[in-house]
Each structure stands twice: as C-alpha cells, then as structure tokens.
C-alpha cells in the first residue's frame, strides 16, 4: 500500500466513523451502545452465573452425586450443624474485629494524610498504596516471617526478656494470625474512601470549632465524623464484606482455623458436593447484596465527592 492509498483509506474510515458518530452521538441508541457492552459483560459474567449458583444450592446431593429436584437441606446444614455454625460465627467475628481495627488505624491515618500534606502526606499515601500492589501470598509470607514462633516479633520479645520460649504468644496459625493479616490487607480499603471525603471538609471548620471552645474529642465526634460519614461508611462496608469473603490470607495464616471461604474451596475441590459449596457461597452473596443496596445509598450521598 502506498502512502497515498493509506491516507485515503484513513480518510474514508475517518469519514465513515465520524458520520456514524455524528448521527448517533446525541441519540438514545448512542448512549446505550456505549454502556451496553459493559452492562452485558456484568450481566453475563456476574448475574447469570449467580443465578446458576443459586439453582445449584437447591440441588439435592446424595451418594456422591448431584440429584434432580430441590431442597433446602444445604442451607439447613450450614445454619444448624455445629461445625458450620461455628465457622460462620468465627468468619463474621473476624470480619467485625478487622473492620474495627482498620477504622481505629485508618481514620487517623487518612486525617493525617490530608491535613499534614507535604512529605508526610505523601509517605502515608505511598505506605498505604504499596501493600495494595503486592501479591496476597507475598504479604502473608511477610506476616509469617514476622509472627511465627521464632519470628521477628517473638525473637525481639525474647531478646528483651519480656517472654521466654515457653510462654511466647502464639500469633500465627490461629484467629490472631488471620485478624492481623486481614487488617493489613484491608487497611487501604478503609483509608482511601476517607481520604477522598476528607479533602472536601474545610480545615476552617475545625479551627472555628476549637476557637469556640470545643476540644479535640468534640471536634472529632461532632464535626469530622458526621461530615466524613459517606467515606467512613463506604470504608466500613467494603472492609467488612471483603474480609468476610477473603480466602488467601485466612488459608495461609489460619492454620487449622477455617473461615467460610476456606470451607467453600475445600468442599468444592475435595468433594463433588457442589450444591453445599454453592449454598455456602450464596450466604456470602446475600451479605454482599445487602451491602450493595446500602452502598447505593452511600453512593448517592457521595455524589459530587468523587470518592470510591
């Protein structure tokens, strides 16, 4: 193809496409053509599969095979068997504790990132962002180095004479390990929505309140929290629901202590009981849906904030 030919080819494509764009850019068709593919992908890859998951969760499972018909037996088993009840309660308990820890650590951090600015603000943003980009297995491995019996923390405590080999705290392969690891994974999800909303709160407000005699606690509870509420609730909801559904960190740091996603994966990979794995998954879907509905309200409140 000569240069001239290619130019005319481009010219023709240019004209064609431009006339299409001109014709449709302000029409109903145009706007649905833009959003259609993405909606289609979300529908086909999220909504339909979830419906199939739901239908599997009602399939009877007998003698090592999935049977026709429908039953609630898997849900009954999940909620009434002591083993699964305990796992469910433990999973929720861990997610709640992680959310509380991350709020306590995350709010001051987000506040400092915005109000201090300068190199300190940058350091905080980089420190929060860096772990987010690193593989979960690598982060868990880091916690393994820190928390194991002769790891960084216990060796240091022994060195300082605070504990002996005999009574060193067990920080790994139990709930403590999961909670520490997950708090680390989820902290950025708490910090960034709060940073976003904190940018919109004028600093003058806090100074004005302090000039009028409010102490720090009053400024925090009466001014900062109410104004940052959209960011705080987004952070809390995301942290809670993602913790609940986490697999890698609990699987690597929990040892024999299991959470629901670990049980789902084990059930699926080591038995053919897909219906039970589906029923357990639907419990997670249920929680996620509740949060999405709540989140929609949060989203509405956050309009114009430009947050998550």
């Amino acid at each position: 193809m000569t240069r001239q030919e290619s130019e005319t080819t481009f010219g023709r494509v240019n004209e064609r496409l431009s006339s299409v764009l001109r014709k449709y850019s302000d029409t109903q068709f145009g706007k649905y053509a833009l959003i259609g593919p993405t909606l289609f992908v979300v529908a086909v890859l999220m909504i339909f599969p979830t419906i199939i998951l739901l239908s599997y969760s009602f399939n009877p499972y007998d003698q090592g095979a999935i049977q026709a018909g429908s039953t609630l037996a898997h849900y009954v088993r999940a909620f009434t068997t002591t083993l699964y009840q305990d796992t469910l309660v433990r999973t929720i308990k861990i997610a709640v504790i992680v959310t509380i820890i991350d709020f306590v650590l995350g709010f001051p951090l987000a506040y400092a990132a915005v109000r201090k600015g300068g190199w300190m603000g940058k350091l905080i943003v980089i420190a929060t962002l860096a772990p987010l980009t690193i593989d979960l297995v690598v982060r868990s491995f880091g916690w393994f180095i820190l928390l194991n019996g002769t790891g960084v923390i216990n060796s240091t405590l022994m060195e300082l004479g605070l504990v002996t080999r005999g009574n060193a705290p067990q920080l790994l392969f139990n709930e403590t390990g999961i909670i520490i690891g997950l708090s680390h994974v989820m902290l950025p999800f708490m910090v960034f929505p709060i940073i976003n909303v904190m940018h919109t709160i004028p600093h003058d407000l806090e100074e004005a309140a302090q000039n009028l005699g409010a102490n720090r606690l009053t400024v925090f509870t009466r001014i900062l929290v109410p104004l940052a509420l959209p960011g705080i609730s987004a952070g809390i909801l995301i942290t809670f629901v993602v913790s609940l559904a986490s697999y890698v960190t609990p699987a690597l740091l929990g040892g024999g202590v299991r959470v629901i996603p670990v049980v789902i994966t084990e059930t699926f990979t080591s038995t053919s009981n897909w219906p039970f794995a589906s029923a357990l998954s639907m419990i997670l879907v249920g929680v996620a849906l509740l949060v999405i509905i709540a989140y929609q309200r949060v989203l509405k409140e956050m309009e114009g904030v430009g947050g998550v």
């Binding site: 199939i52 599997y56 909801l237 996603p261 994966t265 997670l284 996620a288 949060v291 989140y295 989203l299």
Partner: peptide, 21 residues
Amino acid sequence: TILISPLIYPWIVVGLSLLLF
C-alpha cells in the same frame, strides 16, 4: 451501582459461579 458492584462482590463467588456457569 450495578457497574461498580463487582468491587464488593466476593471474588470466591466470581470464580465458583463462573465455573458452574
């Protein structure tokens, strides 16, 4: 909300349900 919902949709469910699908 629909478009951003994968943000909080459990990853484990994404994997399992797509496989079943």
